[in-house]
Design a protein around this nucleic acid. Structure first.
Length: 129
RNA sequence: ACAGAGGGUUGGAGGAUCGCUCUUUAUGCCGUUCGUGUGUAAAGGGAGGAAAGUCCGGGCUCCACGGGAAAAGAAUGCUGGAUAACGCCCAGCGAGGGAAACCUUAGGGAAAGUGCAACAGAAAGUAUACCGCCAUUUAUUUGGUAAGGGUGAAAGGGUGCGGUAAGAGCGCACCGCUUUUUUGGCAACAAAAAAGGCACGGCAAACCCCAUUCGGAGCAAGACCAAAUAGGAACAACGCGUUUUUUGAGUUUCUCAAAAAACAGAUGCUUUCUCGCAUUGUUGUUCGGGUCGGUCGCGCGAGGCAAGGGGAGACCCUUGUCCCAGAGGAAUGAUUCUCAUUUAAGCUUUGGCUUAAAAACAAAACCCGGCUUAUAGACCCUCUGUUUUU
RNA sequence: UGGGGCGUAGCCAAGUGGUAAGGCAGCGGGUUUUGGUCCCGCCAUCCGUGGGUUCGAAUCCUACCGCCCCAG
């Protein structure tokens, strides 16, 4: 399963920007692990939890969480997409340190201006790392 | 023009850059060069009228598909139609509301039975009559009566005339009610006539009765490929509840083996009952087994559009044409340009221009027919009433 | 996907057709030198929301809203 993921999610970004491949977290165990062991940064528009790993496996894995608390299915899907877009754009401008990241959507994630999301995520990264 | 009623359509348009998902084609790599896996490129497809709530109905799949009875248990409830089916829909009937267009309506049965009606009131349902009215008695009675008052949501037909001691369907007329007949209608029902002479009050979204319908579960259904673990099937060996009968062997009334019959227990056949049917223990070997995971189920359908026809309508028939989402931590996002819509402010030659803002409800999860609920804005058709003009 | 339950004062809750018990909290008063304890009184009427049945609905029916639980 993990072997398959290594090949699948490395898409067209490979040519234009180097060394970023977005693996998504899919197992409940991974999310719980990050929440338990990782560091946490709370911003107005999002929450970031992360475990940074050292070693030869230069792998970045990202998971997204949008709970029922923030709204209906439309709102949850929109929030998750915007978080994913944020991660893609940030990864272009600077390389993420390898490790597992979990982004949690908050109430204003779906409606806030996109620049606020970007700013909060950059700030959260400095806290976490 | 204003006020109102009914029905229908739509749910911004066109691009740019970076990304997501599926299909097809081409091609690289791995490789047991069939195949499978994994990348790249190009082309094409990519949410709704409610996809929602999950309230009904059906398809599909598996299980049960022994007979009978009962009980349920649930749902529906005027009539006819329509449909794959429905509690939806269409047409009509009855009842209620509105000035009208029109709207609402769970609308069978109360002489099958049981029950309920607080408080008030004499009395809440086979009238035990409070204040009254009338007669009688001689003043503490007895009898008649239900017109009037009062209570209540509801008081035992209503109005009028006659009648009477006072009264009363006691009699009569009209209305209501019940029964019968006739006419119209497929029917619900409507109208008319005759008779009866008031009996049969309300509540069944109280229990209930009657009629009709319903086997259970759900795509996490189910099928296939398959690491692991426990259990299953076949074969072999051993063993095999109780009673009776027959046969055989051994050593005698006894023991062992085989066959047949009966009975008992347990389990299963949707719940219960009855009858019936099936199965029944231990060890070994082999077959197999189906969890993680993967593939299918899974998009040609009670399908969309157009034309013609049938029908009052729901709807149906014929022909032509089109192919239109298929993910699985779950696909549409980020930035931006032009036009269109609405609102506000400013300018204005009333044509418009500039600036700013807004743009709903809401995301497929097997599929379809409905219902219910949410919904910014825009557009179309029909009808009713009032006012003005012609 | 299927099934079950709950909503009553600020909080916990009883109430299965006839004007909503009780406790805690709160407010006022009394007792006490003062505070506590104790005693008395007050505090719902929009029973989650909208319709309906009924003379009458927290209760019955129906459609919604919110919350919780169970099975796969």
């Amino acid at each position: 399963m993990m072997d398959r993921c290594q090949f699948s999610t490395n898409t067209t970004l490979q040519s234009s920007l180097k060394a970023f491949s977005r693996h998504t977290l899919k197992r409940r165990f991974d999310f719980l692990n990050v929440a338990k062991e990782g560091r946490k940064a709370v911003m107005p528009s999002l929450i970031v939890q992360a475990i940074l790993k050292k070693g030869d496996e230069a792998e970045v894995r990202v998971g997204f969480t949008a709970t029922r608390k923030i709204g209906s299915a439309v709102v949850r899907n929109r929030a998750r997409r915007r978080l994913r877009s944020t991660v893609d754009l940030i990864a272009k401008e600077r390389s993420l340190k390898s490790g597992d990241y979990v982004l949690i959507a908050r109430q204003i994630t779906a409606t806030a201006p996109f620049e606020v999301l970007m700013k909060d995520f950059r700030k959260a990264l400095t806290y976490v790392s």
